[in-house]
Design a protein around this nucleic acid. Structure first.
Lengths: 136, 136
DNA sequence: CGGGATCCGAGCCGATACTG
DNA sequence: CAGTATCGGCTCGGATCCCG
């Protein structure tokens, strides 16, 4: 075991590449956007600020844990701002920052592509599956 | 326990909402794009067709399992086409379909946003973290 | 009302070994 | 060369309980 094995070198290589990819801006953006709830929160807040409970009702499928977690990350990323009003029951409002608003057009570009092309994808899937199971 | 509990109703609600969201074209697109390897394969193939091993070398960080799995899904979605040449060692080429090529401009729009704004995100993160740990 | 803390099951992913 | 099959670690996310 004088030098490293092939497996060790490959793993090292992979780690370096992954570290490199992690610095790629596009990948970072896709990581946040790919998160299931981020885009939903973004569109929900596009119409104006909302309270925590309003968000929870708008995005009915989310658990409080994931909603809170998503909002924290988005706040950390500078996409939303959080305002606490210390009334008798606490009131917390979330709104898009300018940076977050900047993301909306991009999200709409994605939406446009999806609406024009996703049925082609569906058709391709159906055709692919049919080829695998010709007739049950 | 005559009627359903509140928990049961909430879960039902959540399931319905999730099913609804699952039909949203944008979310489907974001699901595929958000996949770590899809965008990398897309950009790798944007320059022209590549063999399996060439892809594996280009995207050095991917395991064969994930590469194969990604390529299968993308083939199923009609984004790439797979051509087998039955030579002595088998040769398999992957290339973008027209649908897959259509995705490239969108990917570049994402890249542009990322390159112009992601450092703002980084700065926001740094500021956020600094606020939590003022000075060690 | 708006969370934090904890537990736990399901699925993802890498490593490894085998095949046509 | 281009995969398939299998196993095991590890993270994600939901459920639950508790707090200011």
């Amino acid at each position: 075991m004088a030098t490293r094995t092939a497996a060790e070198r490959r793993e090292e290589e992979r780690r370096r590449y992954n570290a490199y990819v992690a610095t790629c801006p596009s990948r970072k953006l896709l990581d946040t956007l790919g998160d299931k709830w981020v885009s939903l929160v973004l569109t929900a807040l596009a119409g104006g600020p909302l309270r925590y409970s309003e968000l929870a009702r708008t995005i009915a499928g989310v658990s409080q844990k994931m909603l809170t977690q998503t909002l924290r990350t988005m706040e950390r990323d500078g996409l939303v701002s959080r305002t606490v009003t210390p009334s008798v029951p606490v009131r917390v409002d979330y709104r898009l920052t300018p940076l977050g608003e900047d993301l909306i057009p991009l999200l709409e570009a994605i939406k446009r592509w999806a609406e024009t092309h996703m049925e082609d994808v569906e058709a391709a899937r159906a055709a692919y599956d049919r080829r695998l199971r010709p007739e049950p």
